[in-house]
Design a protein around this nucleic acid. Sequence first.
DNA 1: TTAAGAAACAATAATCATTATCATTATTGA
DNA 2: TCAATAATGATAATGATTATTGTTTCTTAA
Lengths: 138, 138
Amino acid sequence: MASLKYSRQRECIKSFLLSRYDHPTADTIYMNVRKEFPNISLGTVYRNLALLASLGEIIKITVDGADRFDAHVEPHSHFICKNCHQVLDLHVENEELIQAQAQKNFPGQIEGHVVQYFGLCSTCLKEQQVLSQHAEAL
Amino acid sequence: MASLKYSRQRECIKSFLLSRYDHPTADTIYMNVRKEFPNISLGTVYRNLALLASLGEIIKITVDGADRFDAHVEPHSHFICKNCHQVLDLHVENEELIQAQAQKNFPGQIEGHVVQYFGLCSTCLKEQQVLSQHAEAL
DNA sequence: TTAAGAAACAATAATCATTATCATTATTGA
DNA sequence: TCAATAATGATAATGATTATTGTTTCTTAA
């Protein structure tokens, strides 16, 4: 019961995600998987993303707007640019220590944590600097 | 232009949020504010929540499901129970240090961060322990 | 005080992301 | 090969949020 059957669509979704490091949304995944399966439906994409996430084979990243997905499951954090909204990986040394620290004050059982950082990515930072130089010049 | 006008509805939304520590959703806020303003519309609630958040007077918490709101803006983190889905406050000593740590490896400009912890709250933890004792007894 | 302009309102339609339904197709194990 | 059943594609439904519209309420300055 509840046994899992192979599906080529699911395989394709997972291998697409493994090839990407930019945390695509369900819609982006849909657009790309359609190159190989022109008739795949968006519902199938969502269904398989939920299944893969429940198996721990991918990670769902809940952010403002549409959820994003990542097949690279080694622990790491994410940086979200408030200007261009791209999601970048960010590995922080010893970040996991905060969980033990948090557990000290907390009567429940902490099983995991996620950290999201916000700000300007290097590209948008440069753009902003250029703009402020222009403003100075006036 | 773009000056802010007082509104009793906005005041009511904010004072309701100040009275609560359980991070209600827009819908919960709507239900409660209706006690004082029976004709208020859900759109007004959303509009004012967005406005207050942009002013920094409240915080929007993006979680799975509906967004939640918090008028207690002192830095603190949140714990989300994976069983009952309630959101609890959690203050972690020195948590802010991870942001400097993260900046070390990152070429952009990190301006903020949020941490969410997951697991079982103390109530659900106890329930689960009772259940597993019953299972042992069989 | 009152008329003009601006901001906020209530009501509701529209949008967007996601989930559910259902008839059909694909996979798997006997 | 064939029966059992999981997965699919198409599409309807849902839930959260945003946008639109016409009306009301403030504010301000004549």
